[in-house]
Amino acid sequence: MDPAGERQRSGVLTVGQVSHHSIELIWTREHGTDWTDPPENWTCFILEQKNNRKHTYKEIHKGYNTCFTVENLEPKTTYTFRLKVTWPSGQQHYYPSVSASTENEPLNGRNLHNAVLRSDELELRRVLQSIKVTVDVPDKLDFTPLMMAAMKGFTSGVQILVHHGADVNKRNRSGKDSLMLACFHGHLDVVRFLRSCGASWSSLDRSGCCALHWAAAGGHLPILQYLIQDGCEVDVQDGTSWTPLMNISVFTGDTAAASLLIKAGADVNVQDKDGKTPLMVAVLNNYDHLVKILLENGADPNIQNQSGVSAVEMAHAFERKNIISLLMDEESETSN
């Protein structure tokens, strides 16, 4: 068979669909291969890719089909390919090479999170305006961009994300929402804005804690005061019956935060599922200043937990000398 005639039946190499990581290459054949013929009578196509540094070609595909998609390419990069055809007669022919460039890598959730981490308003707007990124896309730790912005105190970023549809009440795997995170990290402007957008302070995480629990654990007085004024229940209990005052006894021993809650009506003698009171926990943690505040506000040192142990007995068992003195003074005043 005339090789020239065979060449006319096999078309030149052309570029099909291109993405940021792939290039589709297509070549045509006027008449399809008669697949009932033995393989030695089939026309074979070999696709080669150029190494731009070495100016050499390497084979990347060999077969009888008329298209191939080259995968795992770098974005925004130019690649060169050529096609070699081998006809049943044994004749071979190289067609002219073609070059194609991959597209820019599409904006994705990682771009969105990075913009928040850098507190970059311009980049944040650019990514969101691409309309290709889901605004509530979580990272590997299941935090959305809004949650990250709330934790950072990136107030303008929070506003931008909410404007683009971010869900202010969305929760991560542990049940925490953006309001809880802003409360714990002490960002009052973010807390105010989220509340104005419908964020609920009554929402509970998987341990049963609400925003007030996390504000108390973080020890942020302005946020505690704002939430109390906003109507938060001061004795709200989590899954283990801990109130925000108990959280302070457990985590911080912050007397100012405790005083604020007590002034708002927090029960100083509330007991959790094990019968522990804030006073008992303050004794165990050796928070003597907090013990003093609790006693001054009516905490009963003789209440017993489910094991029949009181705060007084705990203080003696752990040799909390300063606290024992406070408790003795309290008993002396009570007896008088």
Rank of each mutant, 00 (worst) to 15 (best):
W35D: 11
N286E: 14
T69E: 09
W27V: 04
P3Y: 05
T277N: 10
S22V: 02
M280K: 04
H187W: 04
N286H: 13
E48A: 10
T243V: 07
D235N: 15
Y94M: 05
E313S: 12
K276N: 13
Y94A: 03
E30V: 14
E105W: 11
E123W: 12
Q237L: 13
V127M: 04
V18K: 02
D300R: 08
G231V: 08
T28L: 12
M314P: 00
C197P: 01
A182K: 00
G208D: 05
Q129A: 10
S174M: 08
N286Q: 13
Q225W: 00
V18L: 00
N51K: 11
A182H: 01
E105H: 12
L327C: 09
V312K: 11
K273T: 09
L261S: 04
T86H: 06
L295Y: 09
G153R: 05
I131Q: 14
M246Q: 06
T243K: 04
C232I: 08
V85P: 04
I323Q: 02
R320P: 10
D205G: 00
N302M: 15
M328L: 14
A216N: 00
H316K: 15
V70Q: 06
Y57Q: 06
G32P: 05
D142Y: 03
R118Q: 15
L284R: 07
G11A: 11
G175M: 07
P106N: 11
W35Y: 15
T277I: 06
I228D: 01
I248K: 00
Y226W: 03
S156T: 14
K50D: 04
L326A: 04
E103F: 05
L295E: 10
P138C: 08
N72V: 01
W87K: 06
M328C: 09
K76Y: 14
L326M: 12
S203T: 12
H113V: 07
I26Y: 00
L181V: 03
A315I: 06
E74G: 00
S203Y: 03
D189K: 03
N114Q: 15
F184E: 00
T155P: 00
V135M: 08
H220Y: 05
N302K: 15
L73K: 09
R29T: 14
D2P: 10
N41V: 01
V133H: 12
Y79Q: 06
E74L: 14
D267C: 15
K84G: 02
N336V: 08
N297D: 07
R9C: 13
V18R: 02
Q306T: 12
L83F: 10
D139M: 07
G265S: 09
D120L: 07
W42A: 09
D120W: 09
V12Y: 11
H93D: 08
